[in-house]
Amino acid sequence: MGKAVVLRVNGEEYELEVKPQETLLDVIRERLSLTGTKRGCETGDCGACTVIMNHKAVSSCLVLAVEADGAEIVTIEGLAKEGKLHPLQEAFVRHGAVQCGFCTPGMILSAKALLDENKNPTEEEIRRAISGNLCRCTGYTKIVEAIKACSGTL
C-alpha cells in the first residue's frame, strides 16, 4: 500500500512509508512531530503550512509526500541554530511582527526563501513574496519592516 520515501528535513534524513494521499503537511506534523508547520486551510490559500522545499517556499498541504521523495526540506524548527535565533526570527521579535503567531512560521519561511534568492528585495517584492501568507492580526506593516531589516544582511 505505502511507498517508501526519503525526506531530508532540517538536515536530518527520514525514511518513511507513506500513503499515496498523504500530504507533506501530514507527514511533517503527524509523523515527524514538527508542529511548527501549521494547518490553516488545506487548500493552499492561507500559507500557514509553508515550508521550503528544494529552496522554494511551498504550501506543504498541496504537496503529496510521495512528491517530496528525495527533497531537501526546511521547516521553522530548522532555523534557530545552537540556541541562537535566525536573523529573520530575531527581526520578527524585535519589530513586533508577531501577534497570535499562527502565520509566523510560514511567513518567516516565505521571507527566507525570498532573501535566499534576492538579498535586497524592494518593499513591493517583499509584499509579493508573502502575499500567499495570510495574517489576520498585524496588518502586515511590522512583518514587512522585519523582513526589510534583514535585507542585505543574510
Binding site: 514538527l34 526570527q89 521579535v93 503567531g101
Partner: peptide
C-alpha cells in the same frame, strides 16, 4: 519592547 511570548512563536515551539 519585544513581547515575552514572541520567541516561542518565531521558533514554532508554541503549541496550539
Amino acid at each position: 519592547l519585544p513581547r515575552i511570548d514572541a520567541w516561542e512563536k518565531v521558533t514554532g515551539e508554541a503549541r496550539y
